[in-house]
């Protein structure tokens, strides 16, 4: 269901959410129904619909561009060692319309309940979208409309054993890929001291056949000046 679709008479069911486009005279009407009914009129003669997983920081409203993934179990990393683990991350689904070489965002919805947290202290910390994940050695089985899989490369550059409880990422650099089975993203975490790490997203799909999702911050023309984030309030 993720991907490009013709606008005319498009409809889809995702979990308990149904979305569709209805022709109404000269324009189209976008309708999303779950507990309530969300409706939007679209003034276009034709176009293509793009259904995409996007950065999970837009609901219920955009107040941050950071995502904290808390590990369900503490992860102890050996000095001067690098390993790859798999995590899950929440999915938000965006509906775009493409016409005349321009993209318009119609809707963003999710099957997950959003939750936020504070990373750092109230004076200088940051608000993050909160998510709890297991730490897996292989790709876990997930509902692709609810969760994505993230490959995280953890490198401990320090000379001590370091305990890692969570990873905080700036989603303005997030690259999401998808195919019929999986929604995927990759990131790295370079631990420089027991309290500090540098995180960034990696632009690399799991499989070559995967398609790259449209980023919401690109569609909103947000200028991204940095791609890494320094976790300086603990791991």
């Amino acid at each position: 269901m993720f991907g490009y679709h013709e606008l005319s008479d498009f409809s889809a069911e995702i979990g308990k959410i149904s979305i569709r486009f209805e022709k109404d005279g000269n324009f189209y009407r976008y309708v999303r129904e779950d507990d309530g009914r969300e409706e939007k009129s679209i003034f276009t003669g034709s176009g293509r619909v793009i259904i995409n997983p996007v950065e999970p920081v837009n609901l219920p409203k955009e107040i941050t561009n950071f995502l904290q993934i808390k590990f369900d179990k503490k992860f102890l990393s050996e000095p001067k060692f690098s390993t790859e683990v798999y995590l899950t991350f929440p999915i938000e689904i965006a509906v775009f319309i493409a016409a005349k070489k321009s993209l318009g965002l119609i809707d963003v919805f999710s099957l997950n309940k959003p939750k936020f947290t504070l990373y750092g202290d109230p004076r200088a910390g940051i608000i993050c979208r909160y998510w709890e994940s297991g730490v897996y050695s292989d790709i876990p089985e997930v509902d692709k409309y609810r969760e994505g899989v993230m490959k995280l490369r953890i490198t401990n550059s320090d000379d001590e054993w370091v305990e890692v409880n969570s990873v905080v990422l700036d989603v303005y650099g997030m690259k999401i890929y998808y195919d019929g089975e999986l929604v995927y993203s990759a990131a790295s975490m370079n631990i420089t001291s027991p309290k500090v790490a540098e995180t960034r997203f990696i632009e690399r799909p799991l499989r070559d056949s995967m398609k790259k999702a449209l980023e919401l911050y690109v569609a909103r023309r947000i200028a991204v000046t940095r791609s890494k984030f320094v976790m300086e309030w603990g791991l």
């Binding site: 939750k115 936020f116 109230p122 608000i127």
Partner: peptide
């Protein structure tokens, strides 16, 4: 409180 998105998990 847990159900409310903006009631922070931490603190």
């Amino acid at each position: 409180i847990e159900d409310h998105p903006f009631a922070l998990k931490n603190p």
